[in-house]
Design a protein around this nucleic acid. Structure first.
Lengths: 346, 346
DNA sequence: GTACAATGCAGAATCGATTCACTAGGCGCC
DNA sequence: GGCGCCTAGTGAATCGATTCTGCATTGTAC
């Protein structure tokens, strides 16, 4: 019958193993960490120690080890917003999958920081409290926290965003190029009234994508019209998109994300607008849901999984070398043409 | 210019604060942990200590604290499969969202264990290595690991599954009732050839749902036909579903998950079968993607977010009380009727 | 004026590992 | 036979906190 009020069995410690094997704790540590060669432990002793450890089912306390080594074999992940998983999009799942893949392959665990922090200073000291060897930061832009971490020489990598700061490492996709691809596609189909739907917060990605959109219009001799760029208010996306379509009458819309593009498809359906005949829609990310939308969504593909994985790999290598070299990687984007885009009808 | 080869500034420790405040480490600890009343520290000293701590930007090392208190204010999350995030479904995102919500509100962080483990014994000792105060387990069924954790009195909660073991805590939905709702719906529409698509691994959820399906057929005097129940082979879901439809010619299919239901919609589309006229499809989970599928998917709703949240709350209360009372919660299910079900055509 | 309690704070042990520096014993070499 | 070197392993310090116990000092009562 299990004891219901306390942990019944205590975990064996290194001392228990030492006692059973008839050696000192030090020897146990050397054997189990494979430093036996440098510390010259005889095969016989090694055998004794291993057997004792097995018998007791001994596992070193990660906490105790971290205390002395200063390493935790764990990396932290922080999001723009503590409730990032609330966003109804497959994006975050794919990000976590990439991070997880890389973490599994290098044997690092993942810590999701959830505790609210009042400011960057506190956040920085929370992140560097010893539980993680580095942090992956999913933010809209670099911020004070990132600079503080950098100052302390604490390994950190920004991903899905970027920074002008010389020493901040990041992994991102070619947002500008992706927006150019999307806009050129619409222009080449004959669209002139091309709207753009942005996200509700400013981010390096959204400004780059906006720049790609504007520059392409320019190069195509289409005059930029500020009214054709819309930023929905949070919680009111559908109404905003609806009003935008009704008032501005774009023949095509380039959306900042697949999520917003799918919202746009739903609004169009609601308004009785046929896609792509009466309205072309292009998304960004090209997540799997693009294939399941009605109609399947033309979208700019960024390699979400690869970005997440690369960022994690860079972070781990920074953590392992105990030095912070700034590294930055930009992945190319491609256009996945599906069935939500077509020439405008006259 | 940031030092690029080493952590330039060391984090202040409790000793630094003590030195600056002109008191002992002990006093600092008492003041900062609010034990100042029981330890009787004068307001003047408290003030001095607080100011010193602020000035240095001191934060206690969570690692060092964990060493002595044995608590970490962190909970572990383990999945059936280390690459659980690979499954292309919104389910896991919603689960993480629920867990995250509860964790945020109680101030616990989340540790995702990714390291592969050879067996339950090792897994158990990895989970109890001091970094987390309890674990949330997302598995198809209870297993050896769960029993070992229980034996050690280590707080753990199984979710989205259940156990016959008297002392194992779990949070799940009413799978049987949900399956009954789905099947009754199809029967009441006039279907007699009702197929069921299972997941590719055995789980308590799938056997309960299967039981609900079978019992409902029985009560409706429809003879159970084993050929109408299909378990797709992993990686080959589309082909399996396709063959199943072609060979068994069901007029309706109840799927174990929304993901498989959406696959079924895609296969039907591929085969030129109109849904719901020629084939009715019901899913399970009623995730948001049901509203975006073509046609919108009728599905059994389980409160994924609530289940995840409740499991986390139970776990935290177990961890805080330092005792393990077995608790089990079953949430009801409902049927969300959308547009993928209709009477069969003759 | 003395005894005793309350107050305010600090010393030292502890948690479970790692790592530096050192020792005890055996051996070869001149 | 003495010196030094290699081998195999250990003692003690350390990481940064918490917590139990102890010890002055001051205040109060008789």
């Amino acid at each position: 019958m299990p004891n219901s009020t306390a942990r019944s069995q205590k975990r064996p410690t290194i001392s228990d193993v030492a006692k059973l094997a008839g050696v000192s704790k030090v020897t146990v540590s050397y054997v189990l960490n494979g430093h036996s060669v440098s510390a010259r432990i005889s095969p016989a002793t090694q055998e004794k120690v291993s057997r004792a450890a097995d018998e007791l089912g001994y596992r070193p306390s990660v906490i105790a080890r971290s205390m002395v080594t200063g390493r935790a074999e764990t990396i932290g992940v922080v999001f723009q917003d503590p409730l990032y998983f609330a966003v109804r999009s497959d994006f975050i799942r794919e990000v976590m999958h990439g991070v997880n893949l890389a973490a599994v392959s290098v044997g690092y665990d993942l810590l999701l920081h959830t505790k609210p922090v009042p400011n960057a200073l506190v956040e920085c000291s929370v992140l560097t409290d010893g539980r993680v060897d580095g942090v992956l930061i999913l933010r809209n832009r670099d911020d004070e926290t990132l600079r503080l971490l950098l100052e302390q020489g604490f390994p950190s990598v920004l991903f899905f965003s970027r920074s002008d700061h010389e020493h901040i490492s990041f992994v991102d996709c070619d947002n500008y190029g992706g927006a150019v691809l999307a806009t050129e596609h619409l222009v080449s189909l004959g669209h002139r009234q091309i709207g753009m739907v942005l996200g509700h917060h400013a981010s390096t990605s959204s400004s780059e994508r906006l720049a790609g959109y504007c520059d392409t219009l320019n190069r195509s001799s289409i005059e930029f019209d500020g009214r054709l760029v819309m930023r929905p208010t949070p919680g009111n996306e559908f109404q905003c998109i609806r009003n935008f379509i009704v008032e501005q009458k774009p023949t095509a819309i380039f959306c900042i994300s697949d999520l917003y593009a799918i919202y746009t498809l739903m609004v169009a359906n609601d308004l009785g607008l046929r896609v792509p005949e009466e309205l072309s829609v292009v998304g960004f990310d090209s997540l799997e849901s693009c294939e399941r939308s009605n109609p399947p969504l033309t979208s700019v593909r960024q390699p979400v999984l690869e970005i997440a994985r690369k960022a994690t790999e860079i972070l781990v290598s920074m953590a392992r070398n105990e030095k912070v070299e700034s590294r930055r990687v930009i992945f190319p984007t491609e256009l996945d043409i599906r069935q939500s885009t077509a020439p405008p009808i006259r």
